[in-house]
């Protein structure tokens, strides 16, 4: 590594918007959370806004902390402009794939899909350093075990979700998928070197 981590400005802006959204009136939040409307061409803004809403402060805190930590690696490699572009392009893809993979899901809130995507992308950045590959694989494996546990219904109270709200693990799987695509791009030496993160 030849570069220190930089403050992820674009990701911080996303986090600030997400924190501000906690205080929105319930009626507004209902309009902004992701529903199945966009699949019918309705309320298409929800494809973006659903990722900024949360079911409570604890839910928001864990999601946004993860996002900021992972994004600090990715944004250092990509730069603020490209990361901003990433936040503009990927949320609709994440939303649509989540809705398609979870047909019973009627409403969704959370930045975790973005956080997981950034986590996998960060893994791609670190992959370029041969010495870090084993721990990166271990961390990815641990995440996949957690994902499998969530999918099997073994969710713990650590999710920060209120009672009655199911853990939408499909969003995490979709985040991991999109993040892996980004990781493949970032793990290439030329791409990583171009972004100034990895010494080749």
């Amino acid at each position: 590594m030849n570069t220190s981590l930089r403050w992820p400005r674009a990701s911080f802006a996303v986090a600030v918007m997400s924190v501000a959204a906690i205080s929105l009136p319930a009626a507004w939040a209902t309009q902004l959370e992701l529903t199945r409307g966009p699949l019918d061409g309705l309320a298409c803004w929800q494809l973006w806004s659903g990722h900024l809403l949360h079911f409570g402060p604890t839910h928001a805190l864990t999601d946004l902390l993860t996002l900021l930590i992972a994004a600090s690696v990715v944004e250092t490699a990509l730069g603020t402009r490209r990361t901003t572009l990433l936040y503009c392009v990927t949320p609709p893809v994440l939303s649509l794939l989540t809705l398609l993979t979870a047909p019973q899901l009627t409403t969704y809130r959370g930045a975790s899909a973005l956080a997981v995507m950034m986590g996998f992308a960060a893994g791609g950045v670190l992959w370029r350093d041969v010495g870090l590959r084993v721990p990166v694989v271990l961390i990815v494996a641990l995440f996949l075990v957690k994902l499998a546990g969530d999918a099997a219904g073994a969710a713990t109270d650590l999710s920060g979700l209120p009672t009655g709200i199911a853990l939408a693990w499909q969003a995490h799987a979709v985040g991991a998928l999109i993040g892996s695509v980004l990781a493949l791009h970032l793990a290439r030496g030329t791409a990583a070197a171009r972004y100034g993160m990895i010494s080749t």
Binding site: T66, Y108, A113, L126, L167, A168, H172
Partner: peptide, 19 residues
């Protein structure tokens, strides 16, 4: 059902592990 994407404390720890 209503679903929330939440990485939880485990997600924070894994991200911290990466950094």
């Amino acid at each position: 059902y209503s679903g929330g994407g939440s990485v939880g404390l485990a997600g924070v720890l894994l991200a911290l592990g990466l950094v």
